[in-house]
């Protein structure tokens, strides 16, 4: 090791300058959104790192797919075929309903058009901050992803975009304690807000008064997005109610729901654009 003389006063000065700089950066990051573009480019810069970490896992999946035997593939094919058939049948009905809905809307003079465009994005196998529930996907500014864009999977709502990079973006899951989602009970039309609790697979439904519990909501009810707040399109399934506990001591009851989407172990997600 080389002998070195470090000027301790200039070192302390440098430290203080950098500490002040970081404090300023943090305050700007929290209070204003000047830094979103900076972050977009910085995320673009670090994308190769995230890609490198994700690659071995992708290669592993590809290998396991290419060595899986013929029988297994045939079974999977048969299963997918039956599933496809069932979906086709459902779709026929859906097509009919859609046309009818359009006609009725036309009769009612309501111009509101329903329809969304979706695109598949892949989840990168990368860990983000542990205390938050965020995931990273491989579509970014170059694919016209925008902030607050809804993210869903085949079963239900997953979350929304919170940060955009050039080639990747960060999705905040609905189980994040900072995430709130306007929802509605399908059976009764009761509106509420689904808030994340920071734990795996649990949502808390807010502002449900103790008195209205009997008629409004019960265990097993399906909740869907209500479309209030304009960020999420209406009618996507969010979860199932699993626990209703009236709490006499508090103004509101404790109601918990289980998210429908597979939040933690998905490889593919869908991004939704409004038409």
């Amino acid at each position: 090791m080389t002998p070195s003389v470090i000027n301790s006063r200039s070192l302390a000065l440098k430290m203080i300058i950098f500490v002040l700089l970081s404090i300023t950066l943090m305050v700007v990051d929290v209070r204003f959104n000047y830094l979103t573009t900076v972050r977009t480019y910085l995320l673009g810069v670090v994308y190769p790192l995230q890609y490198l970490v994700d690659m071995p896992i992708k290669i592993g999946q590809w290998l396991s797919k290419s060595v899986s035997n013929r029988n297994q593939l045939l079974n999977e094919n048969a299963k997918l075929r039956t599933e496809n058939l069932q979906l086709q049948v459902a779709l026929q009905k859906f097509e009919h309903l859609k046309n009818e809905n359009k006609r009725l809307r036309y009769l009612l003079d309501s111009s509101k058009e329903v329809g969304e465009r979706v695109q598949v994005a892949e989840v990168l196998a990368v860990d983000l901050e542990r205390s938050k529930r965020n995931i990273l996907i491989n579509k970014g500014k170059n694919n016209n992803v925008f902030i607050n864009q809804p993210v869903i999977d085949a079963k239900g709502v997953m979350g929304q975009i919170t940060q955009i990079g050039l080639f990747s973006s960060v999705v905040m899951l609905i189980t994040d304690p900072e995430h709130e989602l306007p929802v509605q009970v399908v059976r009764t039309g009761l509106r509420t807000i689904a808030k994340g609790m920071g734990t795996l697979n649990r949502l808390s439904l807010l502002y449900l008064s103790n008195t209205g519990l009997n008629t409004g909501i019960k265990v097993g009810d399906l909740i869907v997005t209500s479309g209030i707040g304009q960020k999420f399109p209406k009618g996507y399934p969010v979860g199932t109610v699993i626990e209703v506990t009236p709490d006499i001591g508090k103004p509101y009851a404790q109601v918990h729901a289980l998210p429908r989407a597979i939040l933690e172990r998905n490889r593919e997600v869908l991004l939704v654009w409004k038409k």
Binding site: F18, D29, R39, K132, V170
Partner: peptide, 21 residues
């Protein structure tokens, strides 16, 4: 620290401050 913040999606400056100390 700044790169660490971008990678972990934390506040810009959070890890930068602690790592520079």
């Amino acid at each position: 620290g700044i790169i660490h913040d971008v990678l972990n999606n934390t506040l810009l400056g959070q890890h930068a401050l602690s790592l520079c100390i």
